[in-house]
């Protein structure tokens, strides 16, 4: 595109001038990008590299005077051999998949409900932004109080009416994880809805009209026209949520602390305990690195899936 605008006849001098211009342009773009790259490399990559290095050592700052002993991959092996760590890893995957899936489904429904232009919907949207902006620690504490079985507004009646067990949802190993997932869904569904709504609103109106003129039913229209066009937005929403859901800490930390037993222990809750409480740097670094790896793999998988769906949508 850029070349067409300069002119159709290329004189030699002009060509040289354009080349110089392209060089200058490249330099200019590099100059714009360099500060951010340098900054990130300096401040994020250096500690990250140290984290990778430490993960091969038995390194505890509170014991043995902070001595480092090389242990190879033992810290990584422990993530699977140690029952607590393994449970945390599994919980984190369950949490991520369930929470993101529910947030996506509910978020999409909510976005479709809000799609219609109008004052009423705008006001609803504004109110729905509130949970997104409340500090996650506070969200966790609110629900912990509401679900408390002896005093909580919800918890008391849920137990009284026999919906939850007598000890409440958060104190049972079978229901604690689902409840924590639902709290996360409560907080983040509006954000997903917002992103999807933004996508819906930017869909070209003529295509939608053409589809309804063809006599397609609402469901057909949605599946065949809306969804394929919405894919990039879906991608953004999913990637954002997967990244944050996999690192879930605040909500679990304040509602259950990872309990009862290890029922809601997540990788980050466990990692923060190992790293920032016991200062078990080697093991904590290994946990952090595994988390990065998992998120990267999940996001890559999403990219591939979306791209394939995109290709398929374009073929039909």
């Amino acid at each position: 595109m850029a070349t067409t605008s300069v002119g159709s006849i290329d004189f030699p001098q002009r060509k040289a001038a354009r080349l110089r211009f392209q060089d200058r342009r490249r330099l200019f773009l590099i100059a714009l990008a360099v500060p951010a790259v340098v900054y990130v490399v300096l401040i994020a990559l250096w500690p990250l590299a140290q984290g990778i290095w430490y993960s091969f050592f038995d390194y505890n700052l509170l014991r043995g005077g902070g001595r480092r002993t090389f242990v190879g991959l033992a810290n990584y092996a422990e993530l699977w051999t140690d029952s607590t760590a393994r449970r945390a890893l599994i919980n984190t995957f369950v949490f991520t998949f369930a929470a993101v899936a529910l947030e996506f489904v509910f978020g999409l429904c909510l976005a479709l409900l809000l799609w219609r232009e109008g004052r009423f919907n705008r006001i609803c949207l504004a109110f729905l932004l509130i949970p997104v902006t409340i500090t996650p620690v506070v969200v966790g504490l609110i629900f912990r109080a509401l679900l408390a079985v002896d005093y909580g507004f919800f918890g008391y009646y849920l137990a009284e009416w026999g919906i939850s067990g007598p000890r409440g949802f958060l104190a049972s190993t079978s229901s604690a994880l689902p409840v924590v997932i639902l709290i996360d869904v409560w907080e983040w569904t509006p954000l997903v809805a917002l992103i999807l709504l933004a996508g819906l609103k930017s869909l070209p109106g003529d295509i939608l009209e053409a589809a309804s003129a063809d006599g397609a039913t609402a469901l057909q229209r949605f599946r065949l026209v809306v969804l394929p066009l919405l894919l990039p937005t879906v991608f953004l929403a999913l990637v954002l949520r997967v990244m944050d859901a996999f690192r879930v800490f605040d909500i679990i930390f304040v509602t259950t602390g990872g309990g009862p037993g290890d029922a809601t222990n997540s990788l980050m809750v466990y990692g923060v305990k190992q790293g920032l409480q016991f200062f078990n740097i080697g093991f904590a670094s290994a946990i952090g690195n595994v988390a990065i790896l998992c998120i990267a793999v999940l996001c890559a998988a999403f990219t591939l899936l979306i791209r394939r769906a995109d290709v398929r949508a374009n073929e039909t």
Binding site: A44, M243, G275, L276, I287, G288, I292
Partner: peptide, 9 residues
Amino acid sequence: TVPIIATLI
């Protein structure tokens, strides 16, 4: 996506 525990210390 980098988790804070990997870099904080």
